[in-house]
Every structure is written in structure tokens, then in C-alpha cells.
Design a protein around this nucleic acid. Structure first.
Length: 265
DNA sequence: CGTCCACGTCTAC
DNA sequence: TAGACCTGGACGG
């Protein structure tokens, strides 16, 4: 999916486009099988509401706020989910599944593969750990306090995908983080982290770099903020993921491809 | 045509 | 720990 950097860019996009607008309508595409009850949202949208967004790892939140109260929607964006603000009359994205609207604009949530999910709630998903970018200190503490847990008794390239500890790290970020450390990523995670404590800093630095470059432009996702020169920047920045010259594709326990540096094979 | 692959979770044997 | 959930692009015969 969009990983930490891309989720943060989506959240920026929502804030940048919506800060001066109010919304009063929601539409859900009936082709989507989501069972989420949106009646609380429909209720607050009977008045005009402000929209504010925030991200935490791979979770994205939108607050709908009027003078009395607020309702929060929490999203997981799946493999291909994204947001785009569209002026009425212009073409909306293909595979739009949710729209928040007023007379002039539609904020569209579109998602080719329909893996994105949403829920109404009061807080971030407690199964997911602190954000390595926006909550670095508590992210770091939680990992260091958990090195004797089961998840850290397997190869680090597996552990890095565990969202209870590495919220926001996904398949390209793990390759870019581990590729930049000169240790075999098949080493058991607790040992790996003890030998290479800088990996925790890289869990902050690497997503931030990706964010500053405008995020990954792999298959199904691209940023809607039209960031300058971002395409070339990201492509030369990404050195390991999907790089057949330098890396060899192996499958992890979840059958996802991990791109391991050939020097370890 | 067919098979494989994709930035991710979920849930059911 | 396999599938399930989805669409569509790449590539092979």
C-alpha cells in the first residue's frame, strides 16, 4: 500500500485542499462491500463541517468538526487507496468509493483494489504501534522494551513488517532501511537491533526522506500534491526495492517479496 | 488467451 | 498458515 510517507502526503493533501472549505454531504459507492455504519457521519454532515486530517504510521484520520462536536473516520488505505480533491465538473478518479462534498468540490477516496477500510472511532487502532516519524521517542521505547517478545525472535526482515511495532513500515521501506545497514537482514531481530541500534533512527529517517521526495510512485499510487521534480528524486533514491541488479527477491512468511542485497546470498 | 505480480491486512480451517 | 479480498498491467504461448 501506500506506506508511511504516502499516507502522510495524503493527509497533507486533505489539509491543504480543505482548510478553507466546509462540507455537508457524503456518498458511498454501492459497489463497495464495506459494512461500516456511517450514520453518525451523515448526522453531523446535516450541518456544515470543517475537515482536518492526521496520519499515524499507516493509519489516516479525518475529523469532521462543527461548532457543537466532531466525528472521526479512521482509514487503512490498503494497497492502492488514495485521496484527491476535485472541483465539480472536472473528472473524478476512477474507482472512487467515498466522496465528501459541498456545492463546489468533492474530496474523493479512490482505491483500485478496494482493500482500503474505514471505521468511525475515538482513537487510533491500539493494535498498531507509535508512528516512527511523528512519535519517534515512544516508537523507539516500545521496540527496545519488547526485544524479548515473540515477534523479535525471527529474521529482522519479517519483524519490520509487524505493525504492532513498526507502524507504517511496508514492503519498500523495509528494503530501503535494511539495505542501508551492513548486516545480514536474515539475522534474528533482537540480535540485529542490539548490534545495529541505528536501525531505529533509519525507521524515522528513511520514511521522512521518502516523504520529502513526494512519496513512492510505484504502480497504483501517486501523489496529488504535484511536488516539484519528485519523480526522478524518488526513483534514484530507491536503491534496493525491486532492484534486480543489486538485490535478489526472496519470499517472506507472508509470501511477500523481500529484496535482499545479493552480497548476503 | 493464461499466469504472475503489485506500497496490506483479515479471518477461517 | 493458507486463502480471501480486488483490479489491471506485464509478459508468455
Amino acid at each position: 500500500m501506500p506506506e508511511l510517507a504516502e499516507i502522510k502526503i495524503m493527509s497533507d493533501h486533505i489539509n491543504n485542499k480543505c482548510s478553507d472549505k466546509k462540507f455537508n454531504k457524503i456518498w458511498k459507492n454501492p459497489v463497495h462491500k464495506s459494512k461500516t455504519d456511517l450514520s453518525d457521519l451523515e448526522k453531523i454532515l446535516s450541518s456544515k463541517v470543517y475537515i482536518k486530517s492526521q496520519s499515524r504510521g499507516k493509519e489516516l484520520k479525518i475529523d469532521f468538526i462543527n461548532s457543537q462536536n466532531s466525528v472521526s473516520l479512521y482509514f487503512m488505505m490498503g494497497m492502492s487507496g488514495n485521496f484527491k480533491m476535485v472541483k465539480k465538473g472536472l473528472e473524478e478518479p476512477k474507482h472512487t468509493h467515498l466522496k465528501f462534498s459541498n456545492d463546489d468540490y468533492d474530496l474523493c477516496m479512490y482505491d483500485l483494489r478496494r482493500f482500503a477500510r474505514w471505521r468511525i472511532g475515538k482513537d487510533w487502532n491500539e493494535e498498531r504501534g507509535p508512528c516512527p516519524v511523528s512519535e519517534f521517542d515512544s516508537f523507539r521505547k516500545k521496540v527496545l522494551d519488547s526485544l524479548d517478545k515473540k515477534s523479535f525472535n525471527k529474521p529482522i526482515y519479517e519483524t519490520l513488517m509487524d505493525q504492532e511495532y513498526f507502524n507504517g513500515i511496508g514492503n519498500y521501506l523495509r528494503a530501503e532501511i535494511l539495505g542501508r545497514i551492513d548486516t545480514d537482514p536474515r539475522l534474528i531481530a533482537s540480535d540485529y537491533i542490539k548490534n545495529n541500534p541505528s536501525i531505529l533512527d533509519l525507521c524515522n529517517i528513511i520514511p521522512r526522506e521518502a516523504y520529502q521526495l513526494g512519496g513512492g510512485r510505484l504502480k497504483d499510487w501517486y501523489n496529488n500534491e504535484d511536488l516539484l521534480n519528485s519523480e526522478k528524486g524518488f526513483e534514484s533514491w530507491m536503491q534496493f526495492y525491486s532492484n534486480k541488479e543489486r538485490c535478489f527477491p526472496i519470499k517472506d512468511k507472508n509470501d511477500r517479496t523481500f529484496w535482499i542485497d545479493k552480497k548476503w546470498i
